[in-house]
Design a protein around this nucleic acid. Structure first.
Lengths: 249, 249
DNA sequence: GACGCCGTTGCGGGAACCCGCAATTCCGTT
DNA sequence: AACGGAATTGCGGGTTCCCGCAACGGCGTC
């Protein structure tokens, strides 16, 4: 007997997934459903499914956070990510937490029923990893060095996106103030802020710092959720540091 | 014979809407479907439906933009907005473009089939206006004066969100530089930036400007799409002004 | 070991931002 | 006509940001 877990907050998509999986030839005998990230983590532990279909955008906990917790329990758990967007923030989040041995897939919700079925087969039965073509594009852009931001630049981007000052970033990342500014300069360059700003007149039209966040949002490098995540990360780091005192210094 | 138009980019939700409407007792004899904002505008003009169900988040053109164009042709067209989120950015966008005589509704996609059916009945047959309770909350927060931002504050919020400098905002809005800074101070106060910033130590932890954008994003006052919209608005205003020269001054 | 590349850091200055104080204007109320 | 509140603007100064220049250190190559 094999049981599967589907995690999806939208009732419509949930019932769609349910139908596709039960009609597949997975030999699925039990289907468990969750509506948010916390439920997902709990149920994954309780029912020990043979595979999980996981939405990324959910209340309580992100799909990425849920996957991280689930893989912490069992790094071999096959997970098929199932998302609305190919935003870089999501892709980057996933590639950062996936264990070496994990089998997973990443599919967009716009995929046809056939492709979904095929992917379920691939990931849950044959143990292959598959990633949607649209997402591949983002991934390469992220990993490659021609376009795309380095890890350091991405970090500093999130830091200014949550509103930190240069000094606060320096403390947070453990580097000097001038280094922060150096990284910011690189970031601005890569986002192309040095190209457009001086069109309209005599004085600078854009504030580099704010503009960087804007273009990052518009080009889907980050989104509202990644900002929330970064904010709570930072908040947690601060309180931890507060408890340990300045000893870590 | 009565025809209806449904506009929704997600295939699943579209077929759900189709089913609900055909099974209703609207006397719907023809059902036309569109997948993006531009199609919606064109089809609304061509088929002259008795009512439209309109998703807000779509490729090509926003639901808000589409509704604006449709109502420009026929201000009496009943429109039922059908959205994933109760983000203030959307609500504000709608209340700003709705004609006095229009009949419309605003429903969340999390609504049950029954509620959807009832709302369709109310809006398309009885010509009532209905708005989901969750959204009401946002609306009041938006309209009321206790919480919520004034129009001026909201404008300046969008301006810094797209990365404009104080000076650029002043030019854009036709006010002095100091006024911009005054409005920003109000905005910062209303977003609660004066409460938390000085926890961690001696120096300010947050850059007010960037932090304001961050909390606005996190509290759903704005989102990536409203930033895109504001950006293209600004860009358009600039080119227009460029063509007319400084004569307008 | 010399060379070059890359990231980090210091210095310094010009520009932009943040904001308290105060004068003025506008508008609605009494 | 007088009053009060809200929005706009000027002034001044302290802070932060942006960035060019240059020096230093690590790391891989030849």
């Amino acid at each position: 007997m094999s049981t599967f877990l589907i995690v999806e907050d939208d009732a419509l998509h949930r019932s769609f997934l349910r139908e596709v999986i039960t009609r597949s030839d997975l030999g699925c005998t039990r289907l468990v459903e969750a509506e948010d990230g916390e439920q997902a983590i709990r149920l994954a532990r309780e029912v020990e499914p043979k595979g999980i279909v996981l939405d990324l955008q959910m209340p309580k906990k992100t799909g990425v956070q849920a996957a991280k917790a689930i893989w912490a329990d069992d790094p071999t758990m096959p997970i098929l990510f199932w998302s609305n967007y190919a935003d870089e923030a999501y892709v980057r989040g996933i590639t950062k937490i996936v264990p070496a041995c994990a089998t997973y897939g990443y599919l967009l919700k716009t995929s046809s029923k056939e492709r979904l079925l095929r992917s379920i087969q691939c990931v849950f039965v044959e143990g292959q990893n598959i990633v949607d073509r649209e997402i591949r594009g983002v991934q390469q852009r992220g990993a490659g060095q021609t376009e795309g931001l380095s890890e350091a630049e991405y970090e500093v981007l999130l830091d200014i996106a949550i509103g930190l000052t240069d000094q606060a970033i320096a403390n947070h990342r453990g580097i000097s103030l001038r280094s922060v500014q150096g990284r910011l300069q690189q970031l601005y360059a890569k986002l192309g802020l040095d190209e457009i700003p001086l069109i309209a007149g005599r004085t600078a039209e854009f504030n580099s710092r704010s503009r960087a966040v804007a273009v990052a949002l518009m080009s889907r490098l980050i989104n509202g959720r990644s900002i929330e995540a970064a904010d709570s990360d930072y908040r947690r780091a601060m309180t931890d540091l507060g408890r340990n005192g300045e000893a870590a210094k």
